[in-house]
Amino acid sequence: MNHDSYPDSYIRGILNTVKTIAMVGFSPKENRPSYFVFKYLMERGYRVIPVNPGHAGKEVLGQKVYASLPDIPEPIDMVDIFRASESALPVVQKAISLKPRPQVVWMQLTVRNDEAAALAEANGMKVVMNRCPKIEYGRLSSEISWIGVNSRTLTSKRAHTLGKGVQRMGLTHDTVQGGTTAATDIAQKKP
């Protein structure tokens, strides 16, 4: 997989397949990005299990926080890594040892570790790096278009709503590539 640029079909496939997500590096503080993503994904119907040894045993929005991936007593489909890039490798090593093995390793925006990615891929897992699942869900569902963000998609198909009002939308309608943001992609690669 080319980790500089993911086809929308790859991201959509992952977000349409996984159901249970373990979030490593979760923060219970309401103004932190990981809390945003945690809450947003739960509201979109995913089961999200927070992982943070400093908050193990607490409950946040009804979800129990675990100290480490092996402590989670149920199968996980995807591990979402909210840690510095250099900390991604040991998380991936733990993820590989889980039974059953998760299908996806996802590293958040600004997190990229090519060694960890290669290890995960060699063990049959799909990898996404330097992306946010909330932004990607918002982009592919068109929800993010409500705040003027270039979703980089075009479609003549209607999005379906998830119920509970019209401001939550699903991912089942198809889209094609829209306006690209080459300049920002180049800028992100600079130190």
Partner: peptide
């Protein structure tokens, strides 16, 4: 793949941002 073709300027001028309304179509 067809889904990854980059659309031209005139296509974006008409389609970008304008998806069918999710409730009324």
């Amino acid at each position: 793949a067809d889904a990854e073709r980059i659309p031209g300027f005139a296509t974006l001028s008409i389609h970008a941002g304008a998806k069918p309304d999710p409730t009324t179509g």
